[in-house]
Design a protein around this nucleic acid. Sequence first.
DNA 1: CGCGACGTTGATTTGCCTCAACGATTGTGG
DNA 2: CCACAATCGTTGAGGCAAATCAACGTCGCG
Lengths: 189, 189
Amino acid sequence: MEEIKNHIRRFVNISDKELNAFTKELELQEVKNKEFLLKEGTHSLHHYFVVKGCLRSFFINKKGVEKIVNFAIEDWWISDYDSLINKTPAYLNIQAVEDSIVLKIPQEKLEALFETSTNLNSYFRKILEIVRIADQKRVQFMFNMSGKEMYEHFRDNNPEFMQRVPQYMLASYLGFTPEFLSKVRGLQE
Amino acid sequence: MEEIKNHIRRFVNISDKELNAFTKELELQEVKNKEFLLKEGTHSLHHYFVVKGCLRSFFINKKGVEKIVNFAIEDWWISDYDSLINKTPAYLNIQAVEDSIVLKIPQEKLEALFETSTNLNSYFRKILEIVRIADQKRVQFMFNMSGKEMYEHFRDNNPEFMQRVPQYMLASYLGFTPEFLSKVRGLQE
DNA sequence: CGCGACGTTGATTTGCCTCAACGATTGTGG
DNA sequence: CCACAATCGTTGAGGCAAATCAACGTCGCG
């Protein structure tokens, strides 16, 4: 629990009492590599905070191909917001890419906490601000760069991922085929 | 001011006193068609709420072509979050697409209000949740649909925009050239 | 009227996909 | 502990969706 407490304290000035009210609702869960936390079509109930490991969210497109929407590593949240907020069946899958440890909190508990804690509201608002910025940049990259450039940019800005996710997942996240990524890598700079 | 008060009340249960503390910081601004609220390279200071009209945010890519990142119409917010939060020079331009009326609030005033108002925190958190879901869907569409499908989806789900934005801007938002959009439209269903 | 902004159409090019074949590595059961 | 099957990455040939480039029509407006 110290990981997430520290993470929150990095964003808001929060009392131990308030923090404990929050962490009391968290549940630790271990997930083995390839194990699912959410499958499309089911109802998503939890937000997940990654304590250790690496997860991905993805959907299956109409051609039957996996398309990775997001990765999450240590100190990051992952969930299907659409399903959680709108209470619709999930369109996304969430799956471990390594043996991992997550903390989970049900959306309804979180909503209840928001009623009483300004600081938690603030923390999650700030997380969403960061996510918004990241999403915006992703669109900008997709509109501005060739496949080769996107790969090089990702590699240079996220070296830690290069070791941890297989190449075909990186290809999927960047929006192209494994074959194409392989060719792009083949051409030396 | 009634527009934005009603908008906020749609999301949170807020007292008139709290609301007034917020609206007191807002400033009304008229923007003529093609007028800029933000130019890239300058520092972004405000969030903008559209009372009437239509705005767009865009950047110029390395080939010198405008790429539209977002539109905003009535009851919607638009800003360059990256610039506001990280206090960096804006990468985006914000410009009116019609004669418009906006309410603006400086980021620093908003931050101050967040310190004292749980409800405002909550409101902006909820706005960001919705934005997050929209961003996620946009990535999904880009990964799942052909140009023709993206156009038809947009047309069927956002009919109000079809009347209001010129075709070349729609093309830019969808990520392709005006020529291609024209051809896609040429093929009857 | 004449000019600039916007949309259309056609010919050509290109970035990335598809499909197929083939190594290398891993892991798993006999 | 070997044999074999999966899994993952690489390479090449061919195809296609969308971009590029260029020309032209139309409209609104100074």
